[in-house]
Design a protein around this nucleic acid. Structure first.
Length: 169
DNA sequence: ATAAATCACAACG
DNA sequence: CGTTGTGATTTAT
């Protein structure tokens, strides 16, 4: 269906993340998977990766490790967001300007994109976010500071928030 | 192409 | 605490 996506592993102390790259940039990021699918993907992708993708991957690796440490990434690779709808892109863009350590509610995101009532749709867009952590969907909480949910598992969301110094209930 | 079902919310009684 | 009001996406006709 899509262009040939290149998958490269990122080893962190929290496990091996998988980054997917298209011609446009970073197209997706996955939480550490168990099993050997990730190893096989890494091997198949190790060859014929262009220099540009390797540069992106270096930026992604650095940014991810910083984000996992609770600090703001220094630089991000170009993000390929072509898979999402216009609405989702606005939501993701709004989330990206949440400064590190800050949190927003779904309602605030909805308001900041000019659709104050679309809070539920914002939740849907968060769930459709292909690049967790770097697009800080984990900093989006419910209105009364509740956790809400998280695609990659609520444990991750809580862990990420705690590392940024955010106290959650 | 259209309609119903779903959802990581919020506000109100 | 259950209900209802919402907007976009996904799934089923």
């Amino acid at each position: 269906m899509q262009n040939e996506l290149v998958q490269l592993p990122i080893s962190t102390r929290d496990g091996i993340f998988m980054a997917r790259y298209s011609e446009q940039g970073l197209a997706g990021l996955n939480f550490p998977a168990h099993g050997k699918a990730n190893l096989r993907a890494g091997l198949s992708a190790r060859q014929n990766v262009s220099a540009i993708i390797r540069r992106w991957h270096r930026a992604t690796t650095s940014a991810l490790k910083r984000a996992l440490a609770g600090r703001a990434p220094r630089a991000l690779p170009p993000l390929d967001v072509s898979g999402g709808t216009a609405f989702q892109r606005r939501v993701w863009n709004a989330m990206r300007r949440i400064t590190c350590g800050q949190t927003r509610s779904y309602g605030e995101i909805a308001h900041s994109i000019g659709k104050p009532k679309a809070v539920r749709a914002v939740g849907g867009a968060c769930g459709a976010n292909p690049i967790p952590v770097l697009v800080p969907c984990h900093r989006v909480l419910a209105a009364n500071r509740k956790l809400g949910g998280f695609s990659g598992g609520l444990e991750w969301k809580r862990k990420l928030l705690e590392r940024e110094g955010v106290c959650v209930q």
